[in-house]
């Protein structure tokens, strides 16, 4: 894993992106690393744009915001248009294909995955943030899956803990299947 690593979640208010950022930060903290989690959102309680950022480092973190994300997830068309193009070559860009349907030009490595649909299939759209976390962590290997589970259980209401835990696993499986199909495509071309 890159150290320090910069992670950005972007989308709309109400998608739980800030919670996703908090959980990732907490998981990394549990593994003994320094973390800063910041956020930007508008005055609206729901919708409007929302962004959560996490920096994870074995050293001290001075500037608390992301300057160039190594990993990012975009969960709305606006967020994808705004953030996906501006990224370092080779960085990871995950697009939630349930929400983002347009073509996005970016120098990053793109993974299009039906994150929100996976949450709906699990029975509750609100765990799309946990699915996204599972995806990102499986693709980028930021923390162990166990740390992520521990952090989720600590942060979400108890009655939703199990659902969130399943969402993390579904996200990880989604990422693995995507990686495998990408591998298969590469082999056949």
């Amino acid at each position: 894993m890159k150290d320090p690593i910069q992670v950005r979640f972007s989308g709309a208010g109400g998608q739980g992106l800030i919670t996703a950022g908090i959980i990732l930060a907490e998981a990394a903290m549990l593994e003994g690393r320094n973390v800063v989690q910041t956020q930007t959102y508008g005055p609206e309680a729901r919708l409007g744009s929302s962004r959560a950022e996490v920096i994870i480092s074995s050293g001290q973190i001075a500037y608390p915001e992301v300057t160039s994300p190594d990993v990012q997830v975009c969960m709305s068309p606006e967020a994808a248009r705004k953030y996906a193009p501006k990224t370092a070559p080779g960085s990871l860009v995950v697009l939630d294909s349930t929400c983002v349907r347009d073509e996005i030009t970016t120098t990053g490595r793109v993974a299009r995955l039906p994150i929100t649909q996976a949450a709906v299939d699990l029975g509750n759209k609100v765990v799309a943030n946990a699915v996204a976390l599972g995806v990102v962590n499986a693709l980028a290997g930021i923390v162990s899956h166990e740390s992520l589970v521990k952090a989720v259980v600590a942060r979400v209401p108890r009655k939703y803990a199990e659902l969130n835990e399943r969402a993390l696993t579904v996200g990880a499986e989604l990422a693995t299947s995507a990686a495998e199909s990408a591998g298969a495509q590469a082999a056949s071309s």
Binding site: I22, A25, N34, V35, V36, Q37, T38, I61, P64
Partner: peptide
Amino acid sequence: EMVAHMREN
């Protein structure tokens, strides 16, 4: 707002 809402270990 930034230091108020920021989280750190």
